[in-house]
Design a binder for these strands. Sequence first.
DNA 1: TGTTGACTTAGAGTCAACTCCAAGTTGTAT
DNA 2: ATACAACTTGGAGTTGACTCTAAGTCAACA
Lengths: 129, 129
Amino acid sequence: MTIKEVCEKYDITADTLRYYERVGVIPAVTRTAGGIRDYQETDIAWVENAICFRDAGMPVEMLIEYVKLFQEGDSTIDARANLLKEAREAIVEARKKYDIALEKLDYKIGRYEIAQKTGVLTWDDQEEE
Amino acid sequence: MTIKEVCEKYDITADTLRYYERVGVIPAVTRTAGGIRDYQETDIAWVENAICFRDAGMPVEMLIEYVKLFQEGDSTIDARANLLKEAREAIVEARKKYDIALEKLDYKIGRYEIAQKTGVLTWDDQEEE
DNA sequence: TGTTGACTTAGAGTCAACTCCAAGTTGTAT
DNA sequence: ATACAACTTGGAGTTGACTCTAAGTCAACA
């Protein structure tokens, strides 16, 4: 699979794919004899994981560390498991904050909808607006 | 409430609080006669909302727009409601990605835990590792 | 075989969101 | 009254994550 096909498949730029490889967010991608990237199943799986974890706010630095440990072999299994658990906790925490914001937003949106129907904005005493 | 107290209450730096005010993420804060910030209930409510929405990934730009509309008065109620609905959708979408990442992480962590018990890392055919 | 378009690299540039700095002011404790 | 910490401002600097540029190489087609 060419870099262009991978871009289209995951809606990501070629620059980002090359950047991920360059800094080590994914391991070195398979190349043709001419040196052009030719993504194999394995390469694509790494790309998919990278995008998935980045979308969940996992820092590039952490993904690099994971790939580094992975390449060091089985002796790093504990370290990798710990890293993933740490990442998991961060995501769970972030998700909680998303939920709190959603509650707040829903409350405010509800208020605005009442205002739009009645023409009057009413706020209770715990609101700034 | 002094800036320091607000910092401690919300675990945020004074620089960030001043930055939020400067760019308009929150409206101008109440000052003492000497010009020192003295956060009132209303100011604190704005700070709390700003932190909450930023924590959910809402861009600073969007918060600035909301404050701007708010200050323009009741004629912007529709615009504000639309802005909040847009923000809501973005957060819902981001949350979905967090859930997908969590599933993937749980699967991987599970594999590592088996590996730690048995000493053997086993991956199925859909895994890169 | 030439040309056109997609690919390559190293390195510089951009953007959002802070974060720090310098120089000056305020307010509290001796 | 005098330190001295904590505050103020405007503006510069940093960080993380891309994103772009220049100069060159590869590959498919006329």
